[in-house]
């Protein structure tokens, strides 16, 4: 009996470690290679060699001085931040109502939102672009902020609604008996409780704005609030010769901040993503 358990647990461990190593190498090999490439001088990128023969900051200098990539990184930052703040103002009140109030037709309404969750957003780029040109939102930051809501709001409503629905039912009633108006009960009790979820949604929306390429490419011009993703795209496919070492510097600059954010928000994200088993 004991033997059987031991053997099974050996297989178990082997399988688990094999899986872990497989997945980790799938990620770490490419990343470490390109991280090293960013420190190669222009001449070295044409051969496959892990370590640079000569460590060089030339690519970094070029990216900062000539391309002024930091400018676009800043644009990405502002685009993400604005979108994140705006999304909270839209999603939190709506989700609160869906999660906590009795409402005729609520289920149908919620169904519409769920359908929106599965909506192919890429389609909307076409009419949104036309409308933005017409009403003057084309090539502006607010134009980007509003457009990014398409990506996040259905998801945010879904997550927040679940959160609000699971809080004890008598919280607002209690607040109201002890002197709150309807709005105060929301503002002073429900909102502080939802803060962790709101923070992780802020973070996710920020990353959507930071990462987006499609809308930014379509809705902005070179003179406007162009984001880092678009510059990266242009550098990768635009020129005669691709400056790989510069491209790799850009990938590090645009890629590392989100990873750091993810690691910082790890605990919170795990909770927010918890889809209850049914």
């Amino acid at each position: 009996m004991a033997q059987v358990t031991d053997r099974s647990s050996f297989v178990h461990k082997t399988l688990a470690y094999a899986g872990l190593i497989f997945v980790l190498s799938l990620i770490l090999i490419p990343y470490s290679y390109i991280a090293l490439t960013a420190f190669k001088p222009p001449g070295e990128v044409f051969e496959v060699e892990w370590l640079p023969r000569e460590w060089s900051l030339e690519a970094w200098r070029y990216t900062f001085k000539t391309v002024e990539f930091q400018k676009y990184i800043f644009n990405s930052f502002i685009a993400g931040l604005g979108a994140a703040i705006l999304s909270i103002f839209i999603a939190v009140p709506g989700a609160y109502i869906f999660g906590r109030k009795q409402l005729r037709g609520k289920e149908i309404f919620f169904y519409i939102i769920t359908v929106a969750l599965l909506f192919p957003y890429v389609l909307l780029i076409v009419p949104i672009t036309i409308t933005w040109i017409r009403i003057g939102l084309y090539d502006t930051l607010p134009g980007l902020w509003i457009a990014y809501q398409i990506f996040i709001i259905p998801f945010a409503l879904w997550i927040l609604r679940g959160f609000f629905a699971e809080l004890p039912p008598s919280l607002e009633e209690c607040a109201m008996v002890y002197g709150c108006t309807q709005f105060q009960a929301f503002y002073r009790v429900m909102l502080p409780l939802a803060r962790p979820v709101i923070v992780s949604l802020l973070f996710m929306t920020f990353l959507i704005g930071w990462s987006d390429f499609l809308f930014s490419n379509m809705l902005t011009t070179g003179e406007g609030p162009r984001t880092a993703s678009v510059i990266l795209y242009v550098t990768a496919v635009g020129g005669e010769r691709v400056e790989w070492e510069v491209l790799m510097v850009m990938t590090l600059m645009a890629g590392i901040p989100p990873v750091l954010l993810y690691i910082l928000a790890q605990k919170q994200l795990m909770k927010t993503f918890a889809v209850r088993r049914r």
Binding site: P168, P169, S170, E173, C174, V177, Y178
Partner: peptide, 15 residues
């Protein structure tokens, strides 16, 4: 409204 009644309520789920 409840807040203007000067009553205190203790809930079943403590809340």
């Amino acid at each position: 409204p409840p807040k203007d009644r000067n009553l205190a309520f203790v809930f079943q789920d403590i809340t």
